[in-house]
């Protein structure tokens, strides 16, 4: 168990590819950190640098008190779970679990004890003598987890461990990994491109984009107060609506329509307005501050329906209770305190 400190870490590949750009994250002991971002944003690269599978171009990585930049992966006291599990195909589950311990010269009795313990926790007892190819995807996933926990490492590293599972199993394993991590209280870094996985599992989320950190925060902070338009559009489903707007004398102007802000600050000039689908409602009556929306199509989700349409020329999605009345045009209200304003050039929150 240990803190993991990543300080101004950068990674350049040959040919001037800058995969990770000056990233700093201080991970607390026992914390579950999720690195999330679109494909190619450098999540795996960052994780692999922590694991020691990739060299660090600049910056420092510390596990506990020790700087590990030049330390071999096996000496870093970490365990990693890979997307394709990377189980040794010719070894039984038991041998897979024991291999790392054996290489470390752990006494036989201790190995047996830890393997038994891990297989009990992960309910793998009856599969111990099978080869990986005789297991289902979910069971293989568990073995991969088992291989990590028998080591009792200072930190777990996960690289998209659930993305090879079907949707239902993914939800189940999500819960199991989270519970297991709680129980073992082992510092964990978890990479995913799935924002839902990030929201549900993380103590803190790190949103990466193009090799740099966009925001670090708890799931709710990231959801409620995205620090950039990128984070706003990435976290949450359906994605937050981002609409080109202008600030004019404390009011928000979208095309030819105006939203009154009830005291919320609006700077003058061009803005990007962010509003979540569930932060809008049908207007009652015909009052000031309502905006008109033209409807293109409707997605029924069961509990709610997602209405897609246009506000002047801007695309907009709106979540309504499933019974709500619909027509070609809707009059809606925006909650001024749930609006997010971003600088259209830098994308930063205003």
């Amino acid at each position: 168990m240990a803190q993991v400190t990543i300080e101004n870490v950068s990674k350049s590949y040959a040919g001037d590819v800058r995969a990770v750009n000056s990233v700093s994250i201080a991970i607390e002991d026992g914390e579950f950190i999720v690195l999330v971002g679109p494909s190619g944003c450098g999540k795996s690269t960052l994780l692999r640098m922590v694991a020691g599978l990739e060299s660090v171009t600049e910056g420092t990585i510390r596990i506990g008190e020790r700087t590990v930049n030049e330390v071999e992966p096996a000496e870093r006291d970490i365990a990693m779970v890979f997307q394709n599990y990377a189980l040794y195909p010719h070894m039984t589950v038991r041998q897979n679990l024991a291999y790392g311990l054996k290489n470390r010269g752990t006494p036989k009795a201790e190995i047996d004890k830890r393997v038994a313990e891990a297989s009990r926790i992960l309910e793998l007892d009856q599969y111990l003598d099978r080869k990986p190819r005789q297991l289902s995807g979910g069971q293989r996933q568990r073995v991969a987890m088992g291989r990590a926990i028998v080591r009792e490492p200072a930190a777990f590293l996960f690289d998209e461990p659930l993305s090879n599972l079907d949707a239902k199993l993914r939800v189940q394993m999500r819960g199991e990994i989270k519970q297991l991590q709680r129980r073992l209280a082992t510092t964990s870094i978890y990479v995913t491109h799935d924002q839902l996985e990030a929201m549900t599992m993380a103590d803190r989320i790190v949103v990466l984009n193009g090799g740099h950190v966009e925001q670090i925060g708890t799931p709710l902070e990231v959801y409620r107060a995205p620090q950039s338009a990128f984070v706003a559009s990435f976290i949450g489903s359906p994605a937050m609506n981002l609409i080109a707007a202008r600030g004019e004398g404390g009011r928000l102007v979208i095309g030819d329509q105006t939203v009154t802000m009830n005291g919320a600050e609006v700077p003058n000039g061009p803005l990007t307005l962010g509003v979540r689908a569930e932060d809008m409602a049908l207007a009652s009556g015909n009052g000031d501050g309502h905006v008109e929306m033209a409807i293109d199509y409707v997605e029924e989700l069961g509990a709610s329906r997602l209405v897609h349409g246009r506000l002047t020329d801007e695309r907009l999605a709106l979540s309504l209770p499933s019974g709500a009345p619909l027509s070609d045009r809707l009059s809606i209200t925006l909650d001024p305190h749930r609006l997010h304003l971003f600088d259209p050039d830098s994308g930063r929150r205003i």
Binding site: A79, F82, Q83, A86, L87, H90
Partner: peptide
């Protein structure tokens, strides 16, 4: 990933060759 898993499991070049 097999090589990487083996490296994390503390297998050097010789062990990886013989064991895996």
């Amino acid at each position: 990933e097999l090589l990487e898993a083996a490296r994390i499991d503390g297998a050097g070049p010789f062990k990886f060759f013989i064991d895996i």
